[in-house]
Design a protein around this nucleic acid. Structure first.
Lengths: 210, 210
DNA sequence: TTCCAAACGGGAATTCTGTTCCATTAGATG
DNA sequence: CATCTAATGGAACAGAATTCCCGTTTGGAA
């Protein structure tokens, strides 16, 4: 019985019974190689065979543990979600949301991070598991930045009942829209405007619940 | 010389020398089949072979004229950009932007159009030609809706110098952000809020140029 | 109406992607 | 430190995607 369950666990998700040492090294190398491949060729060009070669790992291992291009990206997203970046606390809603807008702008225009985000958005559009992973990634980020708005509500800068998450989303949305949807170039001014619009609307009570 | 240029044109872009009759029928059938395939399986599962079969067309033709999955989507996008939908004119900025927000919401949640937009966003993230085509599609839509904001400026509802395009983008952005980036469910309330936020910020002058 | 070549279509040949088998390596447990 | 087996890696294999070849159809100009 006990032996059976161990066998079952192993056959279902390789890499979970012996997570230490080699297995962890392999995962790190594969995710690193995946990210490099996404930067160079995007999601469509992601190839398990080449990822394995670049990671210096047998391709059988990659096929067994991740199964598909989408599986690789989903795992990369889970890895990315764990690396938290601290939210700002400048003392004013304007300052905090501007810091957020600049961070998003800097990330999306970064020559390495930009292509990675293009790729994970594409992967999420192609695969349900990736979509859930991407959703989790942003849920984490939104939760991390919501306190900025809650502090502003505490100071009386925005109405009580303001949906903090919605305000945070409103800052990112115009930047991601240009980046992934309308495919227009992103400028610093877009980040400044996004923050300003969110602050104005929040103070006017456009984000209150109900 | 003349014969040479004709030959060259034919070898470069099949379907441009004799665009009438059969060629046009084949294109229509292939783009229709492409859309159906995207609805069913998304961009990642788009297969030139199956598209050809579904369109009732030789697969050689599809490979020759479109070359790749990205080529098919890019042409589909050019076709979609040509089909214009008229913008609203309700007499108020609130009414016009709410109509726009509802239209976007309805489109993205439509069981057929939703998957198509997921697919073209994914394709644009994978391929430069698709990215340009998608950019052209939204440039057309934004241009079509900008007059709503310009009329509001004429009425004195928003400051002179308000960037009409930016206001229109601001309405779509939160909806597309949920749809394609954070992958959260879209509700009617999101559309209403998006329109309200854009109106509030526009009236406050957050979208003025310079 | 006639003619020419653009565009198409079917099938073979090729290339590339993904899968399976089995021997080898190395965590974990006592 | 000995043992057991999870996890890995190389190689052969199977299957799908793409290209090539060449005959057929058809749009459009004379």
């Amino acid at each position: 019985m006990e032996q059976n369950s161990r066998l079952e666990a192993a056959s279902l998700t390789p890499g979970t019974v012996r997570p230490g040492g080699r297995t962890a090294k392999v995962r790190a190398a594969v995710l690193e190689a995946t990210q490099e491949a996404l930067i160079e060729g995007g999601f469509h060009a992601l190839n398990l065979d080449r990822v394995a070669a670049r990671a210096g790992v047998g391709k059988t291992t990659v096929y067994r543990r991740w199964g598909s291009a989408a599986g690789l990206v989903a795992d990369l997203l889970r890895d990315m979600a764990e690396q938290s970046v601290p939210a700002a606390d400048t003392g004013s809603l304007e300052g905090d949301l501007l810091a957020n807008a600049r961070l998003v702008h800097r990330t999306l225009t970064d020559p390495r991070m930009g292509p990675v985000f293009q790729a994970v958005i594409a992967a999420a559009a192609c695969d349900e598991e990736c979509a859930r992973a991407l959703n989790g990634f942003y849920a984490t980020r939104i939760r991390a930045w919501a306190p900025c708005v809650e502090r502003a509500a505490g100071r009386g800068d925005v109405p009580v009942g303001t949906d903090a998450g919605e305000v945070v989303r409103a800052v990112s949305a115009p930047l991601y829209y240009r980046f992934a949807v309308s495919r227009e170039p992103l400028h610093e001014a877009d980040a400044v405007r996004a923050a300003a619009v969110a602050v104005t609307a929040a103070k006017a009570g456009s984000f209150t619940r109900n």
